[in-house]
Design a protein around this nucleic acid. Sequence first.
DNA 1: AACTTATGAGCAACCGATTGCGCAGAGTGC
DNA 2: GCACTCTGCGCAATCGGTTGCTCATAAGTT
Lengths: 327, 327
Amino acid sequence: MITESLTIDDIARELGVSKTTVSRSISGKGRISETTRKRVLDFIEKNNYKPNLMARGLAQSRTYNIGWVVPGDSEMTMLFFFQKCMQGVIDAATEADYDILITTVYGHNISGLQRVLDNHKVDGVILGQTLVHDKAIRALKKSGIPFVTIGSTEEKNVVQVDHDHISACRELSYILKMKGIKSAALIGGTEDKVVTQARRRGFEEGMSGVRTEIFMNCEKTEEIERAVEDAVRNKVECIVCEDDRICYAVLGKLKKDGVRIPEEMRVASFYNSALIDEYQPAITSLEYDPKALGTTACRTLLAMIDGQTPVAKQMLGYEVMLKASTL
Amino acid sequence: MITESLTIDDIARELGVSKTTVSRSISGKGRISETTRKRVLDFIEKNNYKPNLMARGLAQSRTYNIGWVVPGDSEMTMLFFFQKCMQGVIDAATEADYDILITTVYGHNISGLQRVLDNHKVDGVILGQTLVHDKAIRALKKSGIPFVTIGSTEEKNVVQVDHDHISACRELSYILKMKGIKSAALIGGTEDKVVTQARRRGFEEGMSGVRTEIFMNCEKTEEIERAVEDAVRNKVECIVCEDDRICYAVLGKLKKDGVRIPEEMRVASFYNSALIDEYQPAITSLEYDPKALGTTACRTLLAMIDGQTPVAKQMLGYEVMLKASTL
DNA sequence: AACTTATGAGCAACCGATTGCGCAGAGTGC
DNA sequence: GCACTCTGCGCAATCGGTTGCTCATAAGTT
């Protein structure tokens, strides 16, 4: 059933040249007359020849695949983020004729990644998220394969692409302060993610001088709701949410308790996806471009695979979007 | 930097046997004495040898990859579904030492899939979603590669894994009718997806005898809200939502307008993910197992790759979960 | 004892590309 | 006219496995 494909030998025979000539015509390496080259490429075009990537891979020790590693248990808001991000990765990869092999990890359980590395199924890896003391990073370093992380890490000699969450959150906090806030609460998730820590730090730095309350490790809805109750009871003026999943829960709780936004409580979020972007009133937040993260990471990785030495840490831009929820 | 790996020749030399013997020891094919086999496998285990998959692939024309095709522009609720589903695929694939190559398509724009097929990067494909007149299915058929769809299709000779949405929706509708509903509205999305059509049909069949109103092609929140307004105005007793993204919007609108559930309006959904599962009151819905879809599809595909003839259409179970939202 | 069958293992071709090296013929310089 | 360089192309090895075939030896049969 599977139609046998054209091989480089077929073409060589058909055109009365050697396979070397065909190979060189395609790759552009080596010395080939323009005439011959055209002839070969024309034939290839006409007969829709596609080189066998396994053969090519074997000869060059390349797979033309890159690994894309994401947590298998991401919550919804992260899924959205990863989807955008991955689309950026795919776009950049496709440009270079690479494909994406996807692997999931569960926190520090990286057996899936390890398998892919052991089997040499990819030429490089993009790690979609970084944890504190990330085992995946250790494994990648050990494997010797080029890799790029989306998100920062404390590990040395790791090529990273990230938003400057510390500055971004500092800036947002600073602006809120300028607008007259005298107290603020941060509600955040578990601190094993680097980004969570960064946001917390930015918040603390930016909010210096005003009364702050920090509620970390809020994962379940009840935990978030309890934090909201505390914040309201303590007459905090503004709740800052570490991501929009938390923000979503916070908004639900405030509505349930009849707390008006922004009159009785201001709300801001450090990330804004479809989950809250239609909310009334509109929520003040930081805007990032997840897709750009993906393309940047992928292009960087491809350059590394080609033997180039990349910029160690690339920081992408963000924008503070002031909306009605903070007046 | 990249540590050169052990090859089959290294092992053969080291053990004083031929590479044939090593290869046969690993694969279990051919005649090898148990003693020799043990010796080889022990050595492999000790030295952590992993065969080069490109070489193996070249020899066997296999890639040990399967393609996983999902829409690149899925909305959130689908992302959640695909994530679960993919995890099932990954689990089943890993068991058989296969990996997942991910490709996105945009409706009928299947250039990404076509590339993967042209380049022979996968041994088989799982299509995550089916459309009416699906171009991806045509392309897959043409390629001659084994493939399985998650979701049904009108195309002939396609191996499918699905839930019986028609029966499920008929059953849910029937139960609602039994509980005394005299009128019901269906709010659904665009009808290019096969599953959307199936749910509509199940609804219509199950609701025969009661007054029904059908609002299709509701994608944007405003469209859904308008449908809700109409349903309320027409004094419909129950709104049935085609998926939980729609349900989510419906619940928001009802709350905004102060319509009490279930006293003034009953609500049921054809799918229930994290988006609405904490809602108060709890929402009546159909429960599916997306992960099982993934593992079933993948196991079936792997069997096909191994040359077996699979069951043409496998239907997985579902469960009607009656909750407070329908009394 | 002679003959057949079973077993264990190796030789070498093959999968389909890439690439270092060699070589013929054209072009250039003096 | 001679030596030298440049250009265009092919030979054959190589990447790391798999597999059909052969063959020596052991085991079984009469």
